[in-house]
Design a protein around this nucleic acid. Structure first.
Lengths: 329, 329
DNA sequence: TCCAGAAACTTGAACGATCCAATCCTGCCT
DNA sequence: AGGCAGGATTGGATCGTTCAAGTTTCTGGA
């Protein structure tokens, strides 16, 4: 087995001091070109890699970012997280960071995990997916000056922290306009109960688009918890009550339920979902698609901004979704 | 800001030496009960957490396990990875390890990433999902004595390494028997071309179950690349050629295609998929379900066995799948 | 030629944990 | 009371890196 290659090995090989090697790695500009080259050659020849633990001990920085992986709930929307995580890993890697996973069953435990990860591993930052009104997690992190970004706006807007989000209202508005353009007038909406920021936002997009086109949205919407069965139930209700010719849904789960409700009854009704999940692609459901790779990349951008110097709070990012057209609309 | 709590702080607080604190953490049995309690109290009172970087420097162990996260391919089967990763994170956590993500676009890059992760972060082990004949990755890792487990059998069986897998043949056999019990006799199979270990295995299960029941499987199967469109094409072919009353598929993607093919033609044909993906649940497709949480847990078990002492190669684990019954069969 | 000042490079110390070897108790037996 | 065995505790060295401070080399102007 070959000897372990440390900064001292490289220094000896290039006939310079350890510190010079360190400088080549961390502040190349203060080393003379010729020396720098010699050190670089030694690094390549020996296959030297800086030991992260030793570096971390001195600098207190782990170059590790934590992200939470949830138990796939109804599984459909879970794949959004999947794609987001992949993007996160890829972009973080390019920026010299790695992604560490954690799980938690509730907020209290999640906060306990923060403490553990920070104390034991000295994590540099957290990425939170989805926040709710008065989220205790963001408060805890902010109180301790732990860098973090949320994918999802802080809906209560109490304290400003860096965030990245996709403009849900713009997505449902786009969906509604697509249906209006196709000649639809009775365009219904199936969404979530009042009080969830995301849900309210998505409904607002649909409502505003209808009003703008001179269509009265009153009575054309229904609200329920997320789920296929729920979507089916509400769609049946809508078919009887207002006989819509199209429906925009706040999620693919709801849209899938709606599809099942119209099958056999009136297959002409158009349906548009939200999230462009694999299920949507599989069954040919038109759906609002979030740019998850971009979102992840912007999260990393914001974090590296905070971590590598910028003291000012970075500007939030709001990305535009697009419509993945398939054969249900 | 409070002073940083180190092992020395705890020692002072409990009026013992650093070593005693270390012993309480790493070899509690050699410390007197009374002292141990006093140290524990100090640890709790101060909220002390052992610094992983310092520990790692001395021990060379990072308590980090790497797992790869793929770009969701056709998205349907991607969610299998999602669920597996969640299980992995949960079990690893319980065993005192953390999961680090990485990505790679091809084997060569993946191996380069191994080198980086090992050199820089001193990763303790790798979890590989899926292997192929003559996989260069397992060879590289084995050559360097890096601990790893694969989720998926080594189909070429060249060198033995720890693995966990789900008995695919048992799954398709169970599916076939379920159909036989329901009175079906012409039970077709749609799978993947010869040469993929997983695909061959799943087909063998179906074939053997039919033979066992005295049914000749000849001509009843078709092979293609994975995908919904492909599944639909082959199912149409089967309907014309052999008019099966039921079909077992090697994946939910293929099964979904099959479902689309029979819709309108002969909705009585039973269909069973494989993987129990969210899509299957969504459209009511009966599917063979892999115990992914268990699989992840067993992977961690095998790894901790290797990492924490056992020098003998641990016994591979073969788990039994179950049939998630829905209304397509 | 000489010297100030900058640039380039070197040396010693520190980060926080564990390992090793030596020392100190404690209780028990004679 | 003295000796001894065994376990409990202690101090010092160490892992590989970066920081802070020190020393040498180079450059240009008088």
């Amino acid at each position: 087995m070959a000897e372990k290659v440390t900064i001292a090995t490289v220094a000896r090989h290039a006939r310079v001091s350890r510190q010079t090697v360190s400088n080549v790695l961390n502040s190349p500009h203060i080393v003379r070109q010729e020396t720098r080259q010699r050190v670089q050659d030694a690094i390549n020849a020996l296959g030297y890699r800086a030991n992260q633990a030793a570096r971390q001990m001195r600098t207190g920085r782990s170059r590790l970012i934590a992200a939470r992986i949830d138990p796939t709930r109804d599984g459909i929307n879970g794949s959004v997280l999947d794609r987001f995580l992949h993007g996160l890993t890829e972009t973080a890697d390019a920026a010299g960071y790695r992604v560490l996973l954690y799980t938690a069953t509730d907020d209290e435990r999640e906060i306990a995990t923060y403490g553990d990860l920070l104390g034991t591993y000295e994590l540099d930052a957290f990425v939170l997916v989805g926040t709710k009104y008065g989220d205790p997690r963001t408060e805890w992190l902010a109180d301790r000056d732990v860098p973090f970004v949320t994918f999802g706006r802080p809906w209560d807007a109490l304290d400003a922290h860096p965030w990245v989000d996709v403009d849900g209202a713009a997505g449902t508005a786009q969906a509604a306009r697509h249906l209006l353009d196709a000649g639809h007038r009775r365009i219904a909406f199936i969404g979530w109960p009042d009080g969830s920021g995301v849900g309210d936002d998505r409904r607002a997009g649909w409502r505003d688009a209808l009003r703008e086109a001179g269509v009265d949205p009153t009575g054309l919407h229904r609200e329920t918890e997320d789920g296929i069965a729920e979507g089916e139930r509400l769609m049946r209700d809508l078919l009887v009550a207002v006989a819509p010719s199209a429906v925009v849904c706040a999620s693919d789960s709801l849209a899938l339920g709606a599809l099942q409700a119209i099958r056999g009854v009136d297959p002409q009704v158009s349906v548009i979902g939200f999230d462009d999940t694999p299920v949507a692609a599989a069954v040919g459901l038109t759906s609002v698609s979030q740019p998850l790779g971009d979102a992840a990349a912007r999260c990393v951008d914001l974090l590296t901004g905070v971590l590598d110097g910028d003291h000012e709070t970075p500007t939030p990012v709001l990305l535009q979704p697009s419509l993945a057209l398939r054969h249900t609309a």
